[in-house]
């Protein structure tokens, strides 16, 4: 009985996912997944613009990395970044993007990129530098996988440029924006069930 009491009783192991963690992580992921869909549709337009110099499209790629970084920052549980990024990509695949089922793989890889950074700080630190680093991690993961899976026929210097642009985009769009979004959400009081909502200095 003691064990079941601790389910809701004691401060519960902070590593374990509560139901509210799962549902809120899912909602964030699904909402960002819808955003992915719009972002992917926008990509069709952007890529027309960057057609003169396709590696520039890397600058746009940060949008696909938000789910992992944001989910990780809010939920603060091991696996949150991967879970959110994968679920978001599933949703966008279900709605229909140009990458179909293969986004599952991309999602997992990008999620791992962000997750590794959070793991590096042992799931203890959640400040701006960590958020930016997580964005960078996700950006690098994205660049490497994209270069192998889709840009394979580009020559090497273009691949390197793509990696650079994707990293910048990851830091700014996924890292900075997610951090700002987390802070904004905390300020509304909606994250009161999460450490993110209590420790943010608002």
């Amino acid at each position: 009985m003691a064990s079941s009491t601790s389910l809701r009783g004691a401060p519960a192991s902070t590593r374990q996912w509560r139901v509210v963690d799962i549902v809120v992580a899912s909602v964030i992921a699904v909402a960002v997944g819808v955003l992915f869909f719009a972002w992917s549709a926008g990509y069709s337009g952007i890529s027309v613009l960057t057609a003169g110099f396709p590696p520039l499209a890397g600058l746009y790629s940060g949008g696909w990395l938000i789910a992992g970084v944001l989910g990780g920052l809010i939920i603060r549980k091991p696996g949150a970044a991967i879970y959110c990024e994968v679920l978001a990509s599933v949703v966008s695949a279900l709605i229909g993007t140009q990458w179909g089922v293969s986004v599952l793989l991309s999602g997992a890889i990008q999620g791992i990129g962000a997750e590794l950074v959070f793991l590096l700080f042992l799931y203890r630190k959640w400040n701006l530098p960590v958020a930016l680093l997580a964005g960078l991690g996700a950006g690098l993961a994205l660049a490497i996988s994209e270069n192998i899976l889709y840009n394979a026929l580009w020559s090497i210097e273009f691949k390197l440029l793509y990696t650079l642009f994707a990293s910048i985009s990851g830091v700014v769009i996924a890292g900075l924006l997610s951090w700002l979004a987390m802070r904004g959400l905390a300020r509304t009081g909606v994250l009161s069930a999460f450490a993110a909502g209590r420790t943010a200095d608002v």
């Binding site: 079941s4 389910l7 009783g9 519960a12």
Partner: peptide
């Protein structure tokens, strides 16, 4: 219903028992 209880949601005093057990245990 056993929906209150973890420390970061609030503070509890005294006790509340369903059939002699903690509500969360009486799932």
């Amino acid at each position: 219903a056993g929906l209150l209880g973890s420390q970061d949601e609030g503070e509890q005093e005294g006790e509340l028992l369903l059939d002699g057990a903690h509500p969360a245990a009486a799932r």
